[in-house]
Write a protein that binds this DNA or RNA. Structure first.
Lengths: 150, 150
DNA sequence: CCGAATTGTTACCAACCCGGTAACAATTTA
DNA sequence: TAAATTGTTACCGGGTTGGTAACAATTCGG
């Protein structure tokens, strides 16, 4: 699954958890509230639990809750928790059949360029907290009719 | 086709054209030299021609050649010429079924965040010329045995 | 100690996108 | 007119995606 999709889903779930009191919420409740499939929620929230962003408990009154305050949760953490590949996945074209040896060289160039960009993206995400996102969302309400026009 | 793949292919082709004298080279010749499929080459080079980066001529002695010097060709031009989607394609999760209205808000947030990142990437690419890439490739030769290990 | 509830993990599915290739239309020149 | 070349479209096998369900692992209550 792509990192951006998982990231957006994770932030949706975390935003919901931030909006509720500190009680544990199980995946069914979160699913009903957010519209995200419960299984997918468990999948993503378990990654966030492994990264220490949420606490998860099994059993009768189990569920999920934030492990930190929204101020302490950085977007980059979330991203690292859910990513499996890098955002910039360069498909290297390893065909040495040409007379030039250009392909491998060019790919090497882009490989380093793209990892540079990757670092900058993560730096940007490191400066953003869940609180920032919550505030931003609050200032720009859902606007069901006016948001996406065309 | 993903922008990064096309970008790498375009740069390979341009690098080859930069290495040859100013004679027009047809797609078969470039294909043999680079190992890139001739049809794909025509596809990408026609985009570069539309953007004024190469000149293309049909007919008996037709072919492709650079329209500018390598110093005048910026990576961002090439990227814009071949891209159809943005590098960061956010799959918006437009399900309004949840009780929260979070999904659309969160997606809107990421939409603007990612377009910010997109701008920064293009700025970075705007500072790189084909000459820079050629120099970088020349300083880091193909190294057929030591490049990709593992 | 057993059973219910819950998370955690795996597997599977349809749909789509990707890279790659070929085929053909459009155009130019000799 | 014929050959050569670019330009464009269509198609294919394969891998990935998002989505869902099923089941294993774990915990709590009685």
């Amino acid at each position: 699954m792509s990192a951006s999709t998982k990231l957006a889903t994770a932030v949706q779930a975390l935003s919901h958890l931030a909006g509720t009191s500190s009680e544990s919420q199980n995946s069914d409740v979160i699913s009903q509230a957010t519209g995200i499939n419960a299984s997918r929620l468990r999948n993503i929230l378990s990654m966030l639990a492994r990264a220490g962003i949420v606490n998860s408990e099994r059993g009768l009154s189990g569920g999920f809750r934030l492990a930190k305050t929204p101020e302490e949760i950085h977007l980059q953490e979330i991203y690292c928790a859910v990513e499996t590949k890098k955002a910039f996945h360069l498909d290297v074209n390893r065909r040495g059949t040409g007379n030039d040896n250009l392909p491998s060289s060019v790919n090497g160039y882009f490989l380093s360029l793209f990892s540079e960009i990757q670092v900058e993206i993560e730096d940007k995400m490191r400066a953003i907290t869940l609180r920032d996102i919550l505030n931003s969302i609050h200032n720009h309400p859902p606007t069901p009719t006016s948001s996406v026009r065309g």
